[in-house]
Design a protein around this nucleic acid. Structure first.
Length: 552
RNA sequence: GCGUUUGUAGCUCAACGGAUAGAGCAUCUGACUACGGAUCAGAAGGUUGGGGGUUCGAGUCCCUCCAAGCGCACCA
C-alpha cells in the first residue's frame, strides 16, 4: 500500500459516493495529495482532501471527512482511519500492507523511483557554458553539479535529455583573452581590459611550446590570431577534462563561432525579417522585442556591421528547435537574469511559446568565504577558485553533493578552509555511510545464513520500521517533484531523511541474530527491508551523480 | 529609480498553502564486551526581517516598508 495506492483508492471512493447519490456532481481531482504527518501519532499517512473538496459538495469538511473515512476504513490493508482538526484524514496501515513495499522495492531495483511524467519529451538542457577564457570557477561548478543532477532527474521521468554546453568562442572577450596571452608570452603586463590570472601564463607557455612556428615573430594580428586559436583549444580541452573528472559529460559542446561560419545567424535574422520583427535604425539592424514584452528593442547587427551578442542567441535557439527539441532549458547565473525578457521575446518572435519551448532557470551566485568574510573572485585579477581546486580539497562526491543540495534560488556560501578541516559537516558522508551500512549488513547476513528466502511483512511492526517504510515509499514522488519544479536538491534532502530513518532502524532492529542465536523469519524479512533501503539510497545518490560506496 | 532573487536556530540550509517550523555543523548530557560509534537517544537554541491583507489554515499567496545580492549597452 503506497501513497499512490491510497490516492487512487480515495478517488475511487469519491466516485462511488457520487454514483450512489451521496455526493453532488463536481469535478474530481486526478489524484489526491497524500502526505506524511509530521507527528507520528497522526498515523502513517494523512490527506487534506476533505478540506479542499468539501466546499464543492456543499458539505462541511468534518462531515465530508466522516463520509470518506467510513468507506476508507473498509479498504484492505488499512487498519485505522481517524479524523482530526478541521478535517484531516489520518490513515494507519496494517503492518503487513506497509511492509509489502520492502519486497516491491527490492524487486524493482534501479527502476524504483522512476516515472513517466516526461516520457517522449525531447529536452535540451544547457548549463555551465562558461567562457573559454579561463578555468571553470565556483559558479560554473554549481551549475555543473545541479544541471547534471537535473538532467538525471529528467531522465528518470522518461525524458530524452541532451546535455549541452554553449562555448562562447567568438567576440570581444575572446579577443581580450588572445591579447592577454600574447602580452604574457612577450613578458609584458596584461592589457588594461585583459585577463591576469596565473593560468594565462601557463597557457601562453604551452601555446609557445606546442606550436611549431615561432608565433612571436609573426605580425601583430597574426600572432594574436594564433594565440586565440591555440589558446581557445587548450582551454576547451581543459574545461572538458575538468567536467569529465567531475562526472559531467556533455552530449553536445556547441561552438558559438560555428553559427557565424555556417550562416546560421543570417538565416535566423532572415526568418525574423520575414515574420516582420526586424527593422533598421541609426544604421543598425534591430529586433523589435518590445512587441513581446521586452523593455526595449535590441540591436542584432551593430552599425559597424558586427553582430551583437544576441545575434548568436537567435541563431542558437533556432538551431536547437530545428534539431527537434520541444523544450529548451537554459540555466543561467543571476548575473544574467536581466537577459530573460529578451530571450523570452526572442522565443515568441519565432512564434514559439515562452516558458514552454524556452525555459530559463536562474541560479544565484556562490560566495567564497574566508574567516566568515566573502572573498571577491575575479577572473581578470586571477583570484578565482576553480572546479579543480574544490575537488582537490573535498573530492568529487562531497563537492557535487554540497552544491546540489541547496535550492539554486538562494546564494550559497562556501568556506573552503572549513570544508578542508572537517569534511564531516558535509551530510554526504551521513548518506554514504548509511548506504555502506546496508551493504555490510547484507554481507554479514549472507555469511550467517540469513537470506531473502521468505518474507512476512507483518513482522515489520517496529515503530522504526513503519517510519523507514513510509520514507522509502516517497522516492517516486520526490523524483517527480524534483523534475516538475526543476529542483534536484529535493532528492538530496530526501536521501538524508532516508539515511536518518535507516540509521534509527539499524539501531533498534537487528537483521542478523546475536551471536549463537537462531535465524528466524524476522531476520530474513528484515533483510528485505535492509536491501530496500540500500536500493533507495543508491538510486537517490545516482540521481545526484554521487557514488554509493559499499564501504568507506 | 526600475526589474529580479533572497531574508527561517550561533553557522550552512530544508519545509506540494496544512497539524507542535525541521536537518547537519557547533554547544551540553547520555548509550553497545550486540550486524562498523562516520551511529543512536536526549537537552538547549526561533516573534520565519517589520507591518498590514487574503482563508478553515500563511515561512509559503497579495500589498507595503526595511536590509542584502544581482541586473538595467550598438559589452560579451
Amino acid at each position: 500500500m503506497t501513497p499512490a495506492d491510497l490516492s487512487a483508492a480515495i478517488v475511487r471512493i469519491i466516485a462511488a459516493l457520487q454514483a450512489d447519490g451521496a455526493l453532488g456532481a463536481a469535478e474530481l481531482p486526478a489524484e489526491v495529495v497524500i502526505e506524511r504527518p509530521k507527528n507520528r501519532e497522526h498515523g502513517d499517512w494523512a490527506t487534506n482532501v476533505a478540506m479542499q473538496l468539501a466546499g464543492k459538495f456543499g458539505l462541511n469538511p468534518r462531515a465530508f471527512a466522516e463520509l470518506l473515512a467510513g468507506e476508507l476504513s473498509k479498504v484492505d490493508g488499512i487498519e485505522k482511519v481517524d479524523i482530526a482538526g478541521p478535517g484531516f484524514i489520518n490513515i494507519t496501515l496494517s503492518a503487513a500492507a506497509a511492509g509489502e513495499l520492502a519486497k516491491a522495492i527490492v524487486e524493482s531495483g534501479s527502476a524504483f523511483g522512476r516515472g513517466t511524467d516526461l516520457a517522449g519529451v525531447k529536452l535540451n538542457l544547457e548549463f555551465v557554458s562558461a567562457n573559454p577564457t579561463g578555468p571553470i570557477h565556483m559558479g560554473g561548478t554549481r551549475w555543473a553539479a545541479v544541471g547534471d543532477s537535473l538532467a538525471r532527474v529528467f531522465e528518470a521521468q522518461g525524458a530524452d535529455v541532451t546535455r549541452e554546453y554553449y562555448f562562447n568562442d567568438h567576440g570581444a572577450q575572446i579577443d581580450r583573452f588572445a591579447r592577454s596571452l600574447l602580452a604574457r608570452a612577450r613578458g609584458e603586463a596584461a592589457p588594461e581590459d585583459g585577463y591576469g590570472g596565473a593560468y594565462i601564463q601557463e597557457i601562453a607557455d604551452r601555446v609557445l611550446a606546442e606550436t611549431a612556428t615561432d608565433i612571436l615573430s609573426l605580425p601583430e594580428d597574426e600572432a594574436q590570431e594564433a594565440f586565440r586559436a591555440a589558446g581557445v583549444d587548450l582551454m576547451f580541452g581543459e574545461i572538458r577534462e575538468s567536467l569529465h573528472d567531475f562526472g559531467v559529460d556533455f552530449d553536445v559542446y556547441f561552438h558559438e563561432n560555428s553559427l557565424y561560419e555556417s550562416g546560421a545567424v543570417q538565416k535566423a535574422i532572415s526568418r525574423l525579417r520575414e515574420l516582420g520583427h526586424i527593422f533598421e535604425e541609426d544604421g543598425a539592424i534591430w529586433l523589435r522585442s518590445t512587441t513581446f514584452g521586452d523593455d526595449r528593442d535590441r540591436v542584432v547587427i551593430k552599425s559597424d556591421g558586427e553582430a551583437a551578442y544576441i545575434a548568436g542567441d537567435l541563431a542558437y535557439y533556432l538551431d536547437k528547435r530545428e534539431r527537434g527539441f520541444d523544450r529548451c532549458i537554459y540555466m543561467l547565473g543571476a548575473d544574467h537574469h536581466g537577459y530573460v525578457p529578451r530571450m523570452m521575446a526572442l522565443c515568441a518572435a519565432f512564434g514559439d511559446e515562452p516558458g514552454k519551448n524556452l525555459e530559463i532557470l536562474i541560479g544565484q551566485m556562490v560566495n567564497l568565504m574566508r574567516d566568515g568574510e566573502p572573498v571577491r573572485m575575479s577572473k581578470r585579477a586571477g583570484t578565482v577558485v576553480t572546479m579543480e581546486d574544490l575537488v582537490e580539497v573535498v573530492g568529487v562526491d562531497a563537492a557535487r553533493y554540497a552544491l546540489a543540495r541547496s535550492s539554486i534560488n538562494s546564494q550559497l556560501d562556501i568556506d573552503l578552509e572549513q570544508l578542508q578541516k572537517k569534511t564531516n559537516d558535509n551530510p554526504v558522508f551521513y548518506v554514504q555511510y548509511a548506504h555502506a551500512r546496508t551493504a555490510q549488513v547484507a554481507k554479514n547476513a549472507a555469511s550467517l545464513g540469513v537470506a531473502r528466502t521468505d518474507f512476512d511483512p507483518s513482522l515489520l511492526s517496529h515503530a522504526t520500521e513503519s517510519e523507514l517504510l513510509a520514507k522509502l515509499s516517497e522516492l517516486p514522488r520526490v523524483v517527480a517533484q524534483a523534475a516538475e519544479f526543476r529542483e534536484p536538491h529535493r532528492v538530496a534532502r530526501y536521501v538524508e531523511e532516508v539515511a536518518g530513518s535507516y540509521h534509527r532502524w539499524y539501531d533498534a532492529c537487528r537483521v542478523t541474530p546475536i551471536s549463537g542465536g537462531d535465524v528466524e523469519a524476522v531476520h530474513r524479512t528484515r533483510l528485505w527491508l535492509n536491501d530496500a533501503a540500500g536500493v533507495v539510497l543508491r538510486n537517490g545518490l545516482e540521481l545526484l551523480g554521487v557514488s554509493a560506496p559499499e564501504r568507506m
